[in-house]
Write a protein that binds this DNA or RNA. Sequence first.
DNA 1: CCATGAAATGAGAGTAGCTCTCAAAAGGTA
DNA 2: TACCTTTTGAGAGCTACTCTCATTTCATGG
Lengths: 211, 211
Amino acid sequence: MTFMTAARTTPADRPAMGLRERKKIKTRQAIRTATYALIEEQGYDATTIEQIADRAEVSPSTVFRYFPTKEDIVITDEWDPVMLAEVRARPEDESWADVLRHVMRTALDLSLAEEPEVTRLRTRLAVEVPAVRARMIESMSATGRLLREALAERSGLDPDSLELRVFAMSVMGGLMEVSHYWAETGHRDDIRELVDRALDVLEKGLPTQKP
Amino acid sequence: MTFMTAARTTPADRPAMGLRERKKIKTRQAIRTATYALIEEQGYDATTIEQIADRAEVSPSTVFRYFPTKEDIVITDEWDPVMLAEVRARPEDESWADVLRHVMRTALDLSLAEEPEVTRLRTRLAVEVPAVRARMIESMSATGRLLREALAERSGLDPDSLELRVFAMSVMGGLMEVSHYWAETGHRDDIRELVDRALDVLEKGLPTQKP
DNA sequence: CCATGAAATGAGAGTAGCTCTCAAAAGGTA
DNA sequence: TACCTTTTGAGAGCTACTCTCATTTCATGG
């Protein structure tokens, strides 16, 4: 779910870490922050890795050591394991749509509470910058694989079957479109509500369809 | 539907064109042919624009004049208008799933008949090369917009509504996964059959789902 | 508290995709 | 043949990204 904000480090693992790891996290965050700021100021394309490195006070080499591509600086997230756990925690007899509804809401609430502007920036960039959108979809299909696993456990179907694969990707495609819609309409709507409506469509098909 | 083979020029418009336009088409085709050949020989990444230009006997500048990116040389297609017309030609009362079934079959038959190897190469590259996959999904969402239009006409729903957008993209996501599945399993299956199964899932949901 | 090893960083060179500009060549027209 | 337009090639330039190697920074055991 790349359009959500990246999770911060939980306070729990702070004391256990040495100086080294703490510095790494700080650097990572510095690069991201610098990138977001520069993009807000000048736009995505006009922002170069060199500028990012300068503002984050690291070398360009270091930027690439932390993020494989420029797009990844923007879209990387660490939510997948969280969401997978969330799925597993839902009751056995709940429908997949309700499971997703619940999981998405939890994730969105967290994300919007932590860094609402970043969440919005991300979705906006996904609409405006093809490369970012591409990378985002890419990571979405990774999430799709996880969703497949989860659905396989619940439905008893083979996770590698065409049916489950198609199903999972169609759900992801639909959810992706929600993020797009949200950004394109200027983030006016409540995205949680949009997600609910999308899941209705995915569950029950188009409304008021001709017989 | 980027995983299908690009349509050749129909014989009809051959005589009407001057030398200039005929040359352009030949150049375009030369670049594509050179690209496919080089990729088969050395792989996608190892193939540079310079090599492509050399083999196609044009300059690198010209390659970029014909195709905006390297990926586009591989995935560009001209099927969308054809498919849209095909959709419009289907009877009013046919379900969207049947419409898609029909249209997809027509397109696939054409594509497989004309250049089966290219069709396979494309789907394989979409699995193996992230950049190609990204570009392919990109063009898929353009097709998604067309599908939306078509579905709007049939259902009477607003083509810009969240519901229709989500629906169209979920269908495209599902169909995309078919292409992936096909390539990942070594093109062993009959893709027309895979498409049918996928549309069943999209229409009726997962089979044998727990109540 | 210091020496030794490991990990992180920076500097710099190199590749390739892609853009832009401008002059030469080829096609169309009268 | 002469003139205009379109297409092409040559080349310079930018930037994302990779790789290598020397230097610095942290961790650790004596």
